[in-house]
C-alpha cells in the first residue's frame, strides 16, 4: 500500500538524522509533560474540578492528548500545508495520478510526535484503573470511540486549516486556537469552562462531542445513552472540512515559475 511505503520512506529519511530524531522525540515528551504537571499541581490544591476527580481529569487529558498526537502524527501534511503550497510541492501532487488528499496524507508523517503519544499512553495507563470506572466491554468500546472521534475531529481541523490556506496564507494562526488550543483546554472536561464554551465546542467546533459527553457516560454521571455515541457525530466534522478543501483546490493558484 502506498501509505505504508510512504511511511517507510519518511522513517528512512528521519533516520538519516538520528540524533535530531531522538531529541525531537524527547522534546515532544517533555512538552506534553509540562501540561501534565499543570494538572497535577492544580489538582493537588483543589482535588476536584466541577465534580471530576484527579484521575478522571487525567483520563480526559489522556484521551485528548492521545487523539491529538495521533492526528498530528499522521495528518501533519495538512497541519503544515501552507509550506507545501509555498515550496511548490502541491504542484507536484497535482501532476500525479492519485487523490490530492491521499497524497498530502502521505507527504508528511511526523514520527517524532510519538513522544507525545507515549506520554498520553502512560497517563492513560495510570488513569484507567484509578478513574473509578468499572471497565466493562461497552465502556472500553466507548473509550476507543472517544479516541477515534478525537482523531477525526483534530484531523478534520487540520484539513479545514489546509483548505483555508488556498485562499490566504496570512493570519492563519487563529486556527491554532482550535488545534493546539483544543489540545490544551481539552485537558479538562469542557464544562469546566462554562456554558458558552461548552455550547461552542458542541455546535461549532465539536471538541466536546468526543470528550465531555462520552466522558459523562463513562463516569456514570448521566443516563443519556446517546452521549456514548456523540464521537460519531463529531466525526461528521470531516464533511465541512472536505468541502472547504475541495473549493480550495479549485481555487488553487500555483506559485512562482
Amino acid at each position: 500500500m502506498l501509505y505504508l511505503k510512504s511511511l517507510l520512506i519518511h522513517l528512512k529519511g528521519q533516520m538519516q538524522y538520528k540524533m535530531s530524531f531522538v531529541f525531537l522525540l524527547i522534546g515532544q515528551f517533555l512538552t506534553a509533560f509540562s501540561a501534565f504537571l499543570t494538572i497535577y499541581v492544580l489538582m493537588q490544591r483543589f482535588h476536584t474540578v466541577k465534580g471530576f476527580t484527579y484521575p478522571q481529569v487525567l483520563l480526559c487529558f489522556a484521551v485528548v492528548l492521545l487523539s491529538f498526537s495521533l492526528a498530528e502524527c499522521f495528518f501533519r501534511g495538512f497541519d503544515t500545508f501552507s509550506g507545501i503550497i509555498a515550496n511548490g510541492q502541491f504542484d507536484r501532487i497535482l501532476v500525479r495520478p492519485r487523490s490530492a488528499v491521499y497524497q498530502v496524507l502521505c507527504a508528511k508523517i511526523e514520527l517524532t510526535r510519538l513522544g507525545r503519544l507515549l506520554q498520553a499512553v502512560l497517563v492513560m495507563v495510570y488513569a484507567i484503573p484509578h478513574s473509578g470506572v468499572i471497565w466493562t466491554a461497552d465502556k472500553i468500546g466507548v473509550l476507543v470511540l472517544m479516541i477515534l472521534g478525537g482523531v477525526a475531529v483534530f484531523s478534520a481541523l487540520f484539513v479545514l486549516y489546509a483548505g483555508i490556506c488556498f485562499f490566504t496564507i496570512e493570519g492563519l494562526e487563529f486556527m491554532n486556537i482550535f488545534t493546539d488550543g483544543g489540545r490544551e483546554f481539552g485537558s479538562y472536561p469542557i464544562s469546566v469552562f462554562g456554558e458558552s464554551v461548552l455550547k461552542f465546542c458542541t455546535y461549532v467546533i465539536p471538541l466536546a462531542l468526543f470528550q465531555y459527553y462520552p466522558l459523562l457516560w463513562l463516569l456514570d454521571m448521566t443516563d443519556k445513552v446517546f452521549y456514548a455515541f456523540t464521537p460519531l457525530i463529531g466525526a461528521l466534522f470531516w464533511l465541512p472540512a472536505l468541502l472547504v478543501w475541495r473549493l480550495g483546490v479549485k481555487n488553487y493558484v500555483s506559485t512562482g515559475s
Partner: peptide
C-alpha cells in the same frame, strides 16, 4: 488523474525526488 498518467513533468527548479532517501 487520467490525464497525468500520460504525462511526465520536470520542473527544473523543483525536485520531485524524496530528499533524504
Amino acid at each position: 488523474k487520467r490525464h497525468v498518467k500520460n504525462i511526465g513533468v520536470v520542473f527544473g527548479q523543483r525536485s520531485q525526488l524524496w530528499w533524504d532517501v
